[in-house]
């Protein structure tokens, strides 16, 4: 993903705008880190767990006819974890303290999710050789078998 620097900029902007945020992470729907700003939290683990939670959430939404995934909110004793859709192939996960303004978290999270989705999509389109990869994988986020799916870089096109 070539959009990494821009996505990271977006995460920094988000953290500057919402002071109660303690971390922000953009990940692909299959659990790979795109960009992260999560001091004190291991980003790879969080991205993988986000993908796993997303997989369950998608199935719950599907089973109850709630349509496409939009967001997930988890509240623990010491704060919130919120995951927002960022286009069809990425998600934005935000960490916030227990005094956080959830209304504001949602507003900023949704907005940033949309923007990150656009950045990721634009980068995917600008990629010179996307034909080597199976193109429709982004459209159906198959997240149950999390990390394994995306880590096959080029089973067909690679010449070595």
């Amino acid at each position: 993903m070539a959009a990494e620097a821009e996505v990271l900029d977006e995460l920094h902007r988000l953290r500057a705008r919402v002071p109660q945020l303690t971390g922000a992470l953009a990940a692909s729907v299959d659990g790979l880190v795109l960009a992260q700003d999560t001091p004190g939290v291991e980003p790879e683990g969080l991205a993988a767990l986000t993908a796993a939670a997303l997989g369950v959430a998608l199935r719950v939404a599907d089973a109850t006819g709630r349509g496409d995934f939009r967001e997930l909110l988890l509240r623990g004793e010491h704060g919130y974890v919120a995951t927002y859709a960022a286009g069809p192939s990425a998600v934005l996960t935000l960490l916030a303290g227990d005094r956080a303004n959830v209304g504001r978290l949602h507003l900023e999270g949704r907005r940033a999710g949309t923007r990150i989705g656009e950045l990721v999509e634009a980068a995917a389109e600008a990629q010179p050789a996307p034909a080597a990869r199976p193109a429709p994988k982004a459209l159906t986020p198959r997240t149950r078998t999390a990390r394994t799916a995306r880590t096959l870089p080029g089973p067909t096109g690679e010449s070595r």
Partner: peptide, 22 residues
């Protein structure tokens, strides 16, 4: 939490959930 328990009125250009959070 900054979330609205209920809203009435407002408009497309005046989003009461934004006002609630702010």
């Amino acid at each position: 939490t900054g979330m609205a328990l209920g809203t009435i009125g407002g408009s497309k250009s005046f989003d009461l959930t934004v006002a609630a959070a702010g």
